[in-house]
Amino acid sequence: MHVTVDQDRCCSSGQCVLTAPTVFDQSDEDGLVVLLQDRPAPELAAKLRTAAALCPGGAITLAEVAR
């Protein structure tokens, strides 16, 4: 799974951090989403889908990556 985030759409809700804290963080300066890794392990796929669905800004995009 390949993850991208769009800071312009992030409203600092923190849903992603609650759902997948090893992948997402929020900046101490402005609260915007920060990606900790953009190709998380396949086991995290379900959590990533939940995070993308919960994101109120539509700021998280997921793409399957060919192995």
Binding site: S12, G14, Q26, D28, G31
Partner: peptide
Amino acid sequence: RRMMTTDFLI
């Protein structure tokens, strides 16, 4: 809103 977001971060 962004003036206050860091005060309510997780």
